[in-house]
């Protein structure tokens, strides 16, 4: 199965590269977020609840996660395109396992987000980012970004297979808003005043991903328990999405 997954991932990446407009806008948006947030909001990090951390380090995970949520829609869009061209049916007619067929575009989506995360970091370094925990903080953030990217690419692939409709798959990315805004996106949990928002942030898996990244980005000592929570959330979500997508692969023919 891994050989086929690799072959199909390569194919998805090739298709992505041949359609640059499928990823360039999202790339620009996440860099834009980073720029706007740091220059517009950095003053609030002087509040005591921030404990003297740099706001750039605090907001960097938001840029990474919003890039992942926005960009993962691409994997679903590519899949709808395959269903509409009839190519997905051709893939279903090969002896390759259904899991490999859905993992291909998911992994390609994940790798796309990996490159995007590197670019966001690059932009961050240009803005003067320094990571107190050193390269460990950098790599651990990347790992979490990959996990979350896989989960979200899986979500968009699953929705595409379930609905087989470009508009519906696009609408699925509307999940972006609750995931990003009902979380500890801009301020730490202690600063959220509305009780309902606190509850939403606690239920929102994105919170654990962003907190996990902050656990390795903000201070010299890494908060392993928070980081592990993030990794677990990403792993469980990814697995659930792979299963969801694979189960919906059969019969995903053009309507």
């Amino acid at each position: 199965m891994w050989r086929e997954t690799l072959i199909l991932t390569k194919r998805s990446l090739l298709v992505t590269l041949r359609n640059p407009f499928s990823f360039i806008p999202n790339l620009i948006i996440s860099v834009f977020f980073l720029l706007v947030y740091t220059s517009g909001l950095s003053g609030i990090s002087s509040l005591p609840q921030f404990g003297g951390v740099d706001y750039l380090n605090f907001i960097l995970p938001v840029s990474i996660v919003s890039g992942a949520v926005g960009g993962a829609g691409g994997a679903g869009q590519a899949l709808v395109k395959d269903i509409e061209s009839g190519y997905f049916a051709r893939l279903l007619l090969t002896p390759v396992s259904r899991t490999a067929i859905v993992l291909g575009p998911m992994l390609a989506g994940m790798l796309q987000l990996f490159v995007q995360t590197l670019l966001i970091f690059g932009m961050g370094f240009l803005l003067g980012l320094s990571i107190p925990a050193g390269s460990a903080g950098f790599f651990l953030t990347i790992v979490l970004a990959l996990g979350f990217g896989l989960a979200f690419a899986g979500y968009s692939v699953g929705v595409a297979l379930k609905t087989r409709n470009a508009q519906a798959a696009q609408a699925g990315t509307l999940l972006f808003f609750p995931l990003i805004f009902l979380s500890t996106t801009f301020v730490p949990k202690e600063l959220i005043e509305a009780e309902w928002l606190k509850i939403a942030a606690t239920l929102n898996p994105t919170t654990y991903i962003m907190e996990g990244m902050r656990a390795v980005l903000l201070r010299e000592t890494i908060d392993w328990s928070v980081y592990t929570q993030g990794v677990l959330v990403a792993a469980v979500l990814s697995l659930a999405m792979v299963v969801f997508a694979a189960l919906n692969a059969r019969g995903a023919l053009k309507k």
Binding site: I7, R11, V15, S85, G86, A89, L93, T94, V96, K254
Partner: peptide, 26 residues
């Protein structure tokens, strides 16, 4: 199987599609 509508990915070349198909069949 040749379905009523062709199953071709427009972004790949004829050669690429055939090679890919062969590899998916092992």
């Amino acid at each position: 199987v040749a379905l009523q509508e062709t199953g071709i990915d427009n972004d790949l070349t004829g050669q690429e599609l055939l090679v890919l198909q062969g590899k998916l069949f092992g």
